[in-house]
């Protein structure tokens, strides 16, 4: 059903901390692992052992280099998966109704049995969050692990996205961004979480936390050290006094 719900009961999504992401790709691979074995068709790979290997991934980690006005360039690792936009163009363009946004939690999903693999939704997504699986010919995308987060076969503590559970640095947070009291909403508030390409008007649910200021940009907290002595003799003098005190 490709008309977007006027309102969703929750806005489940991810908050990704660019200050903490070390670019280890753990989230990329655990996502691949979980979603190959679970929701819908397997995420296939072409030429997996040959020239130009390429496969379907629902989450990929980019790396960027940013040059501030002053100081050294910075390297920023940048994970990206579906942002589960409130105003999701990928849904409305879908001719078959395969693409839809869930009313319960705002998760954007593809109903693979309805998908004709026209690829239009991937075109409509500004972020490159949809990939057409080359074997199944259906559109794959981040499901926000809809088959984990409510899964009664998993222990309570594991009812979170595979990528969040696995992230060694704790740079990925999952929750309801509709609820100001939630941990994720708090993080967004405190750390100034932002949207990707706001000008596209997609109103992403996922938010990104900016890297904290780095290098010389921080002014020095500690007072510079005062010498107690210039040369060894003077130092021993000081030492004697200092030792008396302890």
């Amino acid at each position: 059903m490709t008309t977007l719900p006027t309102h969703t009961e929750k806005k489940l999504g991810l908050v990704i901390d660019l200050d903490t992401c070390v670019g280890c790709h753990a989230c990329v691979v655990s996502c691949k692992g979980w979603n190959t074995e679970n929701y819908g068709a397997a995420l296939s790979d072409q030429n997996p052992y040959g020239k130009d290997p390429s496969g379907t991934f629902l989450n990929r980690v980019h790396s960027y280099e940013v040059q501030p006005e002053t100081g050294a360039a910075q390297t920023i690792h940048f994970p990206k998966s579906c942002l589960h936009c409130e105003d999701a163009p990928c849904v409305t363009v879908c001719p078959t109704g395969a693409s839809y946004k869930r009313v319960e939690d705002g998760i954007v999903l593809v109903n693979e049995s309805d998908c004709i693999g026209c690829g239009l939704c991937a075109w409509a997504c500004p972020y490159g969050a949809r990939e057409l699986d080359q074997v199944e010919g259906v559109m794959k995308k981040c499901t926000l692990c809809v088959d984990r987060i409510y899964n009664e076969n998993l222990p309570e503590e594991d009812r979170q996205p595979a990528c969040v559970r696995t992230c060694p640095a704790g740079a990925r947070h999952f929750g309801d961004l509709d609820d100001e009291t939630s941990e994720v909403s708090q993080l967004v508030k405190e750390r100034g979480g932002f949207d990707l390409m706001p000008e596209q008007g997609t109103k992403p649910v996922n938010k990104y936390l900016p890297p904290r200021p780095k290098d010389e940009q921080i002014d020095i907290l500690a007072p510079l050290l005062e010498p107690v002595a210039a040369e060894p003799q003077g130092f021993l003098g000081w030492l004697d006094k200092a030792l008396e005190k302890i």
Binding site: S63, V66, P210
Partner: peptide, 16 residues
């Protein structure tokens, strides 16, 4: 696209 404009000029370093 990356929101990194606040820091400075951005370029891709490594593709995913």
């Amino acid at each position: 696209a990356t929101g990194l404009g606040q820091i400075g000029k951005t370029r891709m370093f490594e593709a995913p």
